[in-house]
Amino acid sequence: MLSQRTIESFVGLFLLAAIMALLLLAFKVSGLTSFFKPAGYDVSASFDDIGQLKVRSPVKVGGVLVGEVSSIVLDPSTFKAVVTLHINSRFNEIPDDSSAGILTAGLLGDNYVAITPMYSQTFLKNGSEFQETHSAMILEKLIGQLIYKLSNSSDKATASTSSTEKPAENTTASSENKTEKPKATIAPVSGTPKLEKPKTEVTLHENN
């Protein structure tokens, strides 16, 4: 039989191993940083639609991580989502006329906030608010948009549609009655010029 002292040291080692395991789980696996929030400042941005953005989603400038989303609340009067971004104090020279957009990492990845810097000589500071924001792209809306345009163009050149486009047209034609109404609601709310802009940004980002 082992002496009490030996047993106690083994139990101590066991406990130590478990604590180290927990620390690894916390920092290496789940990337927990909220206990030790790095020094930084909070800025806010309002979006019409934040998509799948969550608290602790990354905030990036040119693809480089500069901070994280610290809270998301709904403004009760404007019904916009007010997102608070916690930005590391190392990045304290971001122009205050920059715009914030919600982008998607890859085709099906998580959402993150991308800040596009502009040229102002005054910088963002604690409590600043982004003037220009771009909402998240919702795949369903984009597809709806696409179908809308396709059906418009196919109306203009009905004869030129190839056999491969036929099934697609058929489905849109069959669901025309249903899709007509949502399209009508989507278009005025988001507005075509607004939707065009993030699209270009995506391509830009992908080029990076």
């Binding site: 696996v29 789940s30 990337g31 927990l32 989603s57 990354p58 998580d110």
Partner: peptide
């Protein structure tokens, strides 16, 4: 690791 860190919540 970074994909893990963004998906796993403590």
């Amino acid at each position: 690791w970074s994909n893990m860190q963004t998906s796993v919540d403590f």
